[in-house]
Design a protein around this nucleic acid. Structure first.
Lengths: 111, 111
DNA sequence: CAATCATATTGAAACTTTTCGATTTGAAGC
DNA sequence: GCTTCAAATCGAAAAGTTTCAATATGATTG
């Protein structure tokens, strides 16, 4: 944890329903761009842009073969991102919540 | 899976490094808004806006007690979101990759 | 009940994202 | 070597996000 900028880049990429859907489509194997394009109402340049974002954040890998580009998931990045959710659902030491904020002293009792 | 819009809403909320950090801060317990504000160089209205987005997507819950608002993680949403990563890392039946796209017939052999 | 304090809302400026059509690049086929 | 095809890049328009200062709301305190 700590590298919030890198996590945020990945989440930003997933923060578009079409890109989330593309990632899901790639989850059972490699697909070429033209095949992904067939499933969406979207121009070729728009898809290309989405794929670029998915690749840049490390979620997706592109493999060029002649005229075609094949895309697949980068499982390392996905595991790492999944870890974010494990980290935020397990208690930690040295957490910010252990330090007191002056403005809130004594608030906890009003429960 | 399938509810890409709802997932995207959550990922969009996490797709800002400050909001990702706030979520991490909340991971070991409830914090009041003023305490979160102390840890950031950010105006009070900006923080309020970020907290609203985090609440609206269901990641965070707000609890009002007098003047203060306490925020905490909504573990149900977090578990559900974690599931997205489980889903995309396990093979599936009836996947889009099983259907052929005309433009790509025969591409697979060029490996 | 007026003042104070913690948050929320509003409105505006700056910046980023989304999308498209047009153009470019670069491989394959004739 | 020209044509065709798949994908990337460019430039622009529209929409959305981020941030702040100012103001509003509503609870608490004197």
């Amino acid at each position: 944890m700590g590298d919030y900028l890198e996590y945020a880049r990945i989440f930003k990429a997933l923060g578009n329903p079409k890109r989330a859907m593309i990632v899901d489509m790639l989850s059972c194997g490699e697909l070429c761009a033209c095949m992904i394009l067939e499933k969406f109402e979207m121009s070729q340049s728009t898809l290309s842009h989405h794929m670029k974002l998915l690749c840049e954040c490390g979620l997706v890998k592109g493999r060029e073969r002649g005229k075609w580009t094949y895309y697949s998931l980068n499982t390392d990045t996905i595991s790492k991102t999944k870890q974010f959710f494990c980290d935020i659902t397990s208690a930690k030491e040295n957490c910010i919540c252990k330090e007191g904020a002056d403005c809130c002293k004594g608030c906890d009792e009003n429960d």
